[in-house]
Amino acid sequence: MYKDTTILAIETSCDETSAAIVRNGREVLSNVISTQIDIHKKFGGVVPEVASRKHLENINMIVQEALQQAGINLEKVDAVAVTSGPGLVGALLIGLTTAKALAYSINKPLIGVHHIEGHIAANYIEHKELQPPFICLVASGGHSHIVKVKDYDSFEILGQTRDDAAGEAFDKIARALGLGYPGGPLIDKISLKGNPEAIHFPRAFLEEGSYDFSFSGLKSAALSYLNSMKMKDEKINIADVAASFQAAVVEVLAEKLIRAAVEHNSKYAVLAGGVAANSKLRQELQCLGSQRGIEVLFPSSILCTDNAAMIGSAAYYRYIRGVVSDLTLNARPNLTIGERV
């Protein structure tokens, strides 16, 4: 008889302390996220020391809440999953130590998950029919990768940023425009009121055929523009700058993802990570995708952000293949995707 698999998952790699209960990789029984953004807002960015301390204060409560919302006891859990990298080491360690203690206490397996593999798996929760292989763009504050998902546990990086991540570029420009943190949603919002063609910012497509990204030239161009306007004492139209900047980021991300999907014969072009919540990116991708016969998929906004349910989903596919970690699992700030953890 078919037996359900219930996984308790924990994610603490950056801003969010999160715990979730996921059944059979696709069904979310609970997904509790304590957003720490209020604290970070004050500082205009992620403050790592503050992050670890808050994670420590939150973690036990969040795990309890996840169990309670799912209506199960810890003893009913079949495995404990946790993000083991990449991320801020102090933050990762809080989740990791908690997961180890819980797994040990119930004598169930521990499963380490790569944060980006988790973001990709968010789509398995959202789209029950989605199965590998497919092409996925993972774009967030710390990452901009085009990944070929060959199987649930087999990945090939086709392209990545050579300098700044897409979300980081959003954050830095938002800060320069005085919009605040996090930059992505704020730029998305104000861009609706701006003209995306007001200022032509450069698009870095790099060498022909490359799936890599580079956003530092665009960042410099936007900052130079702001600087020169200030020197000339001219008024800056924040909505126009935001919309034009966003258009430049989105055009390159969308074009490369769709091209990767076409060239690798993927039926799907899949979006993941915080930047996947950007409305302009979704719109542009759906437009390009329909022209090229590619189905564009993305998770709902709550699954784009860092959350533990996605970790539970990724962990399930390791669990059913017998790929588990042991209690020597360590935090790996520079963990590479596809690496066994």
């Binding site: 991320g87 801020l88 890599d212 530092s216």
Partner: peptide
């Protein structure tokens, strides 16, 4: 590639 360590520190 040397990438920005803004997020990773």
């Amino acid at each position: 590639f040397i990438t920005s360590p803004t997020y990773t520190i």
